[in-house]
């Protein structure tokens, strides 16, 4: 079925099924970390997650119907935000910790060994606390992640050709489906109409914080790469080069 003909419930169950599997770093962690070893673990994990992120995006109903140029552009714009929201979701029940993967968990203080990363860890932990306070539900989380992807370049490009315009219109209709799905997920929580509206506002406002942390993270990673602290390669390199 086309996403426009799907009920919000159906749409959510499709994006729940699209969720990537749990991923392990599978490295022998030598503690204490050095700046280089921690950056290497973080980038290795990010590279593995990126491969799964592409398959995830393709499973979002309607995504592959967008032009290939739009698909590429969207993913290049939002990949670090998506990684960060996933990290927040994994960490939501572990105050003070960042659960990068089941075998790679860091305390805030462990950020001390990488120059400039503690500031980013603190922003990640603060946004995670907000999600904890709001008691973020899995259904809401998957909607927010799809929203980040589809919203990521809406205001940075304007369609020129007829083909671009068509893809843009498809994108807007797809965003409508995701917003409907999020509204439906919130409506299942037994809140008053006013509380539902407030919750929608609070959840979507958090996305601007995630964009901010992602920009900070992007600057940090490119400076680590420039200073040769870490060797960035493969898909991660391609995505990083696109954003800087």
């Amino acid at each position: 079925a086309h996403h426009s003909a799907m009920s919000p419930e159906e749409f959510i169950s499709r994006i729940m099924e699209a969720e990537p599997p749990e991923i392990y770093l599978m490295e022998d962690m030598k503690k204490p970390f050095t700046e280089a070893s921690m950056m290497m673990s973080l980038t290795n994990l990010a590279d593995k997650e990126l491969v799964l992120m592409i398959s995830w995006a393709k499973k979002i109903p309607g995504f592959v119907e967008l032009s290939l140029a739009d698909q590429i552009h969207l993913l290049k714009c939002c990949w670090l935000e998506i990684l960060m929201l996933g990290l927040m979701w994994r960490s939501v029940d572990h105050p003070g910790k960042l659960i990068f993967s089941p075998d790679f968990k860091l305390n805030r203080e462990e950020g001390q060994c990488v120059e400039g990363i503690m500031e980013i860890f603190d922003m990640l932990l603060a946004a995670t606390s907000r999600f904890r306070e709001l008691k973020l539900q899995r259904e809401e989380y998957v909607c927010l992640k799809a929203m980040i992807l589809l919203n990521s370049n809406l205001c940075t490009s304007s369609p020129q050709t007829a083909e671009e315009l068509e893809s843009r219109n498809k994108l807007l209709r797809l965003l409508d489906s995701v917003i409907d799905a999020l509204v439906w997920a919130i409506s299942k929580l037994g809140l008053s109409t006013q509380q539902q509206t407030l919750r929608l506002g609070h959840l979507t406002m958090l996305l601007s914080h995630i964009r901010h942390v992602s920009n900070k993270g992007m600057d940090h990673l490119s400076s680590m790469k420039r200073k040769n602290v870490v060797l960035v390669y493969d898909l991660l390199l391609e995505m990083l080069d696109a954003s800087t």
């Binding site: 491969v51 592409i54 398959s55 499973k59 590429i72 993913l75 898909l235 391609e238």
Partner: peptide
């Protein structure tokens, strides 16, 4: 061919 393009254009198994 970039890796992103390659991953986007391969058919799911």
């Amino acid at each position: 061919h970039t890796k992103l393009l390659q991953l986007l254009t391969t058919k799911p198994e």
